[in-house]
Design a protein around this nucleic acid. Structure first.
Length: 698
DNA sequence: CAGCCTCGAGTTCT
DNA sequence: CTCGAGGCTG
């Protein structure tokens, strides 16, 4: 990609229009090539400074010949390609996570819960409930989509909703068949990519010999290998795959989970042979302990076992609570522990002012990862465990991820040790850190004057669920705040007027500045729910923001309503607290936010710069129940109350507790009492259990 | 009023 | 991932 000779160095003022046009064409081509190398291949072909020079040359010529600016000019191109280099894939059905259990009692509770939920089991304790137990492989969950027998897309789990497209890499995994011999038009097979311990050892040996980085554990090695941008590298890594679940599917695989696994085996997938059907809690406990004992002899790492209700129709009825199915549990092995010295306690200030103590630890390896910090949660937690600076503490990684301090080694405490005194002032702004009665957290009362809170609020504003400005991470936000470039959300959208200041910053250049500004431009329009969430109002997270957006539809409508709600006797307040999930406490925080003049100013400044899109209802599955309010009463015979409620909600109904004029249907089981009478009085339509079942089936 | 469940806010390391 | 708080249900 060399420059057309001679032209490149000529003074811009000396160029003829023809020469300028030719050079602009060449520059567009060349810069696009470098962008490709940089973003898609992750292998920049030239130095940043040289790249910047090309872009500046392009701009200089365009400035002199504005009529020659090309449609494909680099100066016009906005929007950076996906950061890591992988495209995103939306899972056809969400990839759920699992609830965890640790003790035998947790297993018993899981089984009891399933029995309570399924009416026929609740009624008949002697009725068998088959549960499938399988080892929980310590690897990476992926989804493989096959269409007409051909492997078409493979993705990581990601956040469960959206993952990364790693199809090319997955094709190199030997246990992932390229074709399956079956009539299924669509099947998405889910399972775990892992590496055996032996393969991991020899890979590390090779890496060491090659002077490349060695991996901490097989899991990390598998993860690192799958995230390679070059599939050839992945191909050289000894990855394996076990299938254990499925997503979208055109025809059911079987009636039971174990039947489905057999079917997957026949389709050509590797299915873990160590699986067992258990008929009682005792058998489950036995299986779990056998696996634990066998653990070190298995060729691969496992971190527990997974138990699943075997009957698929029951699985479906059990459904999921938030992000975990009710029909499965991950029974984890006890986490590895380590001892280390607590060298200091650092106090952090959160976006809402919460001051959180964090333990600084002498680095120690726990479960293959070096840990140097752990949260101490709050004042009470420190007191309860009597943690002191200088203590030897026991650390484990909760769920094998977040380090936590289990306790102290009392015997190793020095005589001069003193109980920890929790600071009563914000370490950042010096304001009093107050603890409301009944609350555990201490909060910095500095509010708007506390710089730590301001930075955290900005970090929240640009974070993923909020404005989601790519390439504007915590460090940059803090630095921009410190240097006065960004003090409020509105400032972010005024940054384009300060390109020069950004470009000249340490570590920044033409390209990074342009990328940031492009990422910001992309977010000049956001939907109302994201906007509300981004403001960081206390107790208003993603779910509550969506609720508010759905209720008030437009930014202006919401703003007006929140100001009007300040009158607790008024209609606006009643409307706000009538929203399901919004009570007096959440309402109070919303009102307080809008009562603060500074917040209103900041809001107005921000909406000068950005457009807030009205909330658009997601297309709900059309059903006779969508948008209806239903009430249950009496005892249902074929399902439990919670199951019926979940089903109704899945079809878009709102389930209320008592009958009112707003109720559309009362579903009456046996022995219906006062609610049925009230429904008759109000003329609310009453459905029998059978009628309700027809409704949900149709 | 107690006991669930959901949500929010805080956190670690690669 | 975990804990605490708020809100709803019975």
């Amino acid at each position: 990609m060399s420059a057309p000779g001679g032209l490149r160095d000529r003074d811009v003022d000396a160029l003829s229009a023809e020469e300028a046009a030719a050079e602009l064409a060449a520059l567009a081509d060349e810069i696009a090539g470098h962008d490709r190398a940089y973003y898609q291949d992750d292998a920049p072909a030239i130095a940043d400074a040289d790249y910047d020079r090309l872009r500046r040359r392009n701009e200089a010529i365009e400035a002199r010949f504005p009529q020659l600016v090309r449609a494909d000019s680099p100066s016009r191109r906005i929007g950076a390609p996906p950061a890591g280099g992988f495209a995103k894939v939306v899972h056809s059905r969400p990839m759920l996570s699992l609830n965890n259990g640790f003790t035998d009692a947790d297993l018993a509770e899981f089984v009891a819960g399933v029995r309570r939920y399924l009416k026929e089991l609740a009624d008949d304790p002697s009725r068998p409930l088959a549960i499938m137990g399988e080892p929980k492989i310590d690897g990476l969950a992926v989804a493989l989509r096959y269409e007409d027998g051909r492997f078409v897309v493979g993705a990581t789990r990601g956040d469960g909703i959206e993952g990364e497209d790693i199809t090319a890499n997955l094709r190199t995994v030997r246990d992932v068949p390229d074709r399956i011999d079956d009539t299924l038009s669509v099947i998405e097979v889910r399972g775990e990519v892992y590496m055996t311990r032996a393969d991991f050892e020899s890979l590390n040996e090779r890496q060491r010999d090659a002077g490349a980085k060695v991996f901490a554990n097989p899991r990390n090695a598998a993860a690192g290998s799958l995230r390679q941008l070059d599939p050839m590298v992945t191909a050289s890594r000894p990855l394996r795959f076990f299938a254990y679940a499925w997503g979208e599917i055109s025809t059911p695989l079987a009636d039971t989970h174990h039947g489905a696994l057999d079917r997957l085996t026949r389709l050509g997938f590797a299915v873990n042979p160590i699986a067992r059907l258990c008929g009682s809690v005792e058998e489950m406990v036995a299986f779990y302990h056998e696996l634990a004992a066998q653990r070190s002899e298995l060729p691969y790492d496992i971190d527990g076992c997974v138990f699943k209700v075997d009957r698929l129709d029951w699985q479906e009825r059990l459904g999921a609570v938030s992000r975990a199915p009710r029909w499965a549990i991950a029974q984890k092995f006890a986490a590895e522990r380590a001892e280390t010295r607590l060298s200091a306690i650092r106090i952090q200030v959160g976006r809402t002012g919460t001051v959180t103590p964090v333990a600084e630890l002498e680095p120690v390896t726990v479960g293959g990862v070096v840990v140097s910090r752990a949260t101490l949660h709050n004042e009470d937690e420190i007191a309860r465990k009597d943690v002191r600076v200088g203590d030897t503490v026991i650390v484990q990684r909760a769920g094998d991820v977040i380090p936590q301090i289990i306790g102290i080694v009392a015997a190793r405490r020095g005589d001069d040790s003193e109980p920890y005194r929790f600071p009563e002032h914000c370490p950042e702004c010096g304001s009093l850190a107050v603890r409301e009665p009944g609350e555990v957290a201490r909060r910095c009362s500095g509010g708007l004057i506390c710089p730590a809170q301001a930075v955290e609020r900005l970090i929240h504003f640009v974070s993923r669920g909020a404005y989601d400005i790519e390439g504007f991470g915590d460090r940059h936000v803090a630095a921009f705040y410190r240097d006065g470039l960004v003090r409020s959300p509105a400032d972010i959208f005024r940054l384009h007027r300060r390109v020069a200041e950004i470009r000249d910053r340490e570590g920044w250049g033409e390209r990074s500045a342009a990328n940031l500004l492009a990422a910001i431009e992309q977010r000049r329009r956001v939907p109302l729910d994201r906007f509300i969430y981004a403001l960081g109002i206390r107790q208003v997270g993603e779910a509550t923001a969506r609720l508010l957006a759905r209720t008030y539809q437009s930014y202006d409508g919401w703003r007006e309503a929140m100001i009007a709600a300040a009158d607790p006797a008024g209609e606006a307040y009643a409307e706000l607290t009538a929203i399901d999930q919004i009570g007096p406490a959440v309402a109070a925080d919303l009102i307080a936010f809008f009562r603060e003049p500074h917040n209103l100013e900041a809001l107005d400044a921000l909406t000068e710069e950005v457009t807030v899109e009205d909330y658009v209802m997601p297309a709900a599955r059309a059903s006779s129940l969508s948008g209806k309010t239903v009430v249950f009463t009496g005892v249902l015979s074929t399902m439990t109350r919670s199951e019926a409620k979940a089903q109704a909600e899945a079809l878009g109904a709102k389930v209320a507790g008592s009958v009112s004029a707003k109720t559309d249907y009362l579903i009456a089981g046996a022995d219906a009492g006062s609610k049925a009478a009230k429904a008759r009085a109000l003329g609310v339509r009453t459905l029998s259990e059978a009628e309700f079942r027809d409704l949900i089936a149709g």
